[in-house]
Design a binder for these strands. Structure first.
Length: 595
RNA sequence: GGCCCCAUAGUUCAAUGGAUAGAAUUUCAGAUUCCGGUUCUGAAGAUUUGGGUUCGAAUCCCGAUGGGGUCACCA
């Protein structure tokens, strides 16, 4: 791309002019702002020290050097310390004709040397997925695709939290109040059915606590002494002891949940390369802790529990093994991290987990480093903020969770209402129309959530997200469909032939703007991968769609008489549609061929 | 309270330390017209606060204020 070309030339220029070996960070190239003449701008302030001249004079010297020594540079102008470089039209046109047909534009070949593991989703099996999981799943899936497009060999991993006291609560409630209810008999999706019993457990549990409190017990103690919780703990113990009856019930109910999750994942359009179950990994990590004790980096207390003192690292003391020898969260995460490292030897180990667990991952890294695992540095916690709704905050503790399945259905319904109102579906049969609602509803949801910087808390407004105008997924999808429609019409008129005649037309400003925007796409993908941020791709997709709309609005395409101009505009349209499709693919968003 | 994160137009989001802080939406004005709708054009509108570093700060550093998270032998 042109940036690389210019970086090299500028390096050469400052070496020749000022005998300076410039580091890449000193060469700051950016797209020239619209109000100025030029395509790419070099910030020359970093060179004024060695040039011992004013910013303007320095810029002029470098500009002149580039103009003389680089064919692609046709001119320059200087404003303050900014050197605005004009790239000649041949460069842009050859870029266009070389790439406009390339379906994989912006994507790099996979390099097997760069393996990356991305863990995301990681649900509990006692209740259905909710809005928070949606952000998690979308981020994880999209990030995986972005990394893949940047040339990484990505393994998408899910770690299902299928054991523990939470599922025992659902099991107990189902045994006691369930009357053999099944997904089939109740018509409920499996995960919803199990979630229902979790809620039932909680209701009775709270009642028991209330009774104990009126009898004079303090609430904290009551929460530990309530018969239901004791019984649930007994079930957990039986589970760990391998009790047949308990295990069978556990398998049955988890099976229902998996069926339900599979449907949710399918509807949401995400997938995994590999699924791990905590029931199979929760014993891992104990040997590691033992190893740490031998090495003297962890300490065993009199009661048998194992701790690490992280006060020197600015953290607290942390428990690594219970006094009864059983694992805690940290123990198994140490184990699974080690397992993954040994299995894949990845250059990066990414965890998509909410920001409430930031401390946990900081500790995880440090604990591994104390063990001598230098690869702990490759752990990256993609920490994301909470999703709120206009109605208020979404926290499971307050019982205001928004169910993922319900939310998606609402999105489909809303997009249907919207499409009908706008008369989008008159030429569609039922099947096509239904697919369109799905595509639009999901596109709206995904785009709205992914366009926000992951680390920030965000507000999801369902009604606003499906708007066909504005910074929304449907707007981008609509732009794509419109381009496709233009191209179909052109093809009907037998225009394909002229696509190949892209020579010596004069680029109009709007055409060049669009081309420049398209030209940025590979750099955007690289940056998004580097910063682990789908938001960069999302905002780019909107920019590109908006740019196309401006282009489309100001220039005629189908009625253009000049054949070369017409070919130019059609190839630009084709190119834009490919890049929009590619950008949306990175976000896991489908594009409709017409709408 | 300790530690971590966040703070940008009325609202929801942008801005690798670079030029006059961009969009979308809302509001207002105009155009379009079967219409108080749609579409189009234009305008208005923001860096919480006080210092510091820098040629240059929304961005980096220190303090204040406000919001969120986290400080379990839960995961």
């Amino acid at each position: 791309m042109i940036e690389q070309l210019l970086t090299d030339k500028v390096t050469e220029a400052v070496k020749t002019l000022y005998q300076l070996e410039a580091s890449p960070s000193q060469i700051q190239l950016q797209n020239t702002r619209k109000e100025f003449e030029g395509d790419i701008t070099l910030v020359v302030f970093p060179f004024t020290k060695v040039s011992r001249k004013s910013p303007e004079a320095t810029a002029a010297e470098i500009g002149e050097y580039l103009k003389v020594n680089e064919d692609a540079v046709e001119g320059y102008n200087v404003i303050k310390g900014f050197l605005n470089i004009s790239i000649n039209q041949e460069y842009w046109l050859s870029f266009l004709s070389a790439n406009y047909r390339a379906g994989e534009f912006g994507f790099r070949e996979m390099d097997n040397g760069h393996q990356v593991v991305v863990e995301y989703s990681s649900p509990n099996t006692n209740k259905p997925l909710h809005l928070g999981h949606i952000r998690n799943n979308l981020l994880g899936f999209s990030l995986s695709r972005i990394l893949q497009a940047a040339g990484k060999n990505v393994v998408k991993v899910n770690l299902v939290n299928d054991r523990g006291i939470h599922i025992c609560k659902s099991m107990l409630a189902w045994q006691r109040w369930g009357n053999d209810e099944t997904p089939e008999s109740s018509g409920l999706k499996g995960d919803h059915l199990v979630g229902k019993y979790y809620v039932i457990f909680d209701k009775h549990f709270k009642e028991e606590i209330a009774v104990l409190v009126t009898e004079g017990m303090n609430p904290e103690e009551a929460a530990k002494k309530a018969p239901l919780i004791i019984e649930a703990q007994q079930i957990l113990q039986k589970w760990e002891a391998g009790d047949k009856e308990v295990i069978n019930l556990w398998k049955k109910m988890n099976g229902w949940v998996y069926d339900g999750f599979a449907k949710t994942y399918q509807t949401l359009g995400i997938e995994f390369d590999k699924t791990y179950y905590e029931s199979q990994t929760y014993l891992l990590g104990k040997e590691l802790v033992e190893e740490g004790v031998q090495k003297g980096v962890y300490t065993r207390r009199a009661d048998g529990s194992v701790w690490i003192d992280l006060t020197a690292d600015g953290m607290d003391e942390k428990l690594l093994l219970r006094s009864d020898g059983t694992s805690v969260y940290m123990t198994q995460d140490l184990g699974t991290a080690m397992q993954r490292y040994e299995e894949y030897k990845p250059e990066q180990l990414i965890y998509v987990v909410g920001n409430e667990q930031e401390y946990h991952f900081n500790v995880l890294k440090v604990v591994l480093k104390h063990l001598g695992c230098t690869w702990a540095e490759s752990i990256y916690h993609l920490s994301y903020g909470m999703v709120e709704l206009p109605a208020g905050k979404m926290k499971s503790r307050e019982g205001t969770v928004v169910d993922a399945d319900d939310l998606m259905q609402e999105m489909f319904d809303t997009s249907e209402a919207m499409a009908r109102e706008l008369g989008k579906i008159e030429s569609f049969d039922d099947e096509e129309a239904k697919n369109l609602y799905r595509t639009i509803g999901l596109g709206a949801l995904k785009y709205f959530i992914l366009k926000v910087d992951p680390k920030k808390n965000m507000l999801f407004n369902p009604a606003e997200s499906v708007d066909f105008n504005g910074n929304t997924g449907p707007f981008i999808q609509y732009t794509y469909a419109r381009i496709k429609s233009v191209l179909r019409k052109a093809a009907d008129a037998g225009d394909e032939v002229s696509f190949s005649t892209l020579q010596s037309v004069q680029l109009m400003p709007q055409e060049k703007e669009l081309l420049r925007k398209i030209h940025d796409f590979p750099a955007i993908v690289a940056q998004a991968a580097e910063l682990h941020s789908p938001a960069i791709v999302a905002n780019y997709a909107f920019d590109l769609a908006s740019e196309y709309n401006r282009f489309y609005h100001e220039l005629t395409i189908l009625k253009e008489e000049n054949l070369a101009s017409r070919a130019l505009r059609l190839s630009l349209s084709q190119f834009t549609s490919k890049v929009i499709a590619n950008a949306l693919w990175l976000l896991g968003i489908e594009v409709p061929e017409r709408m």
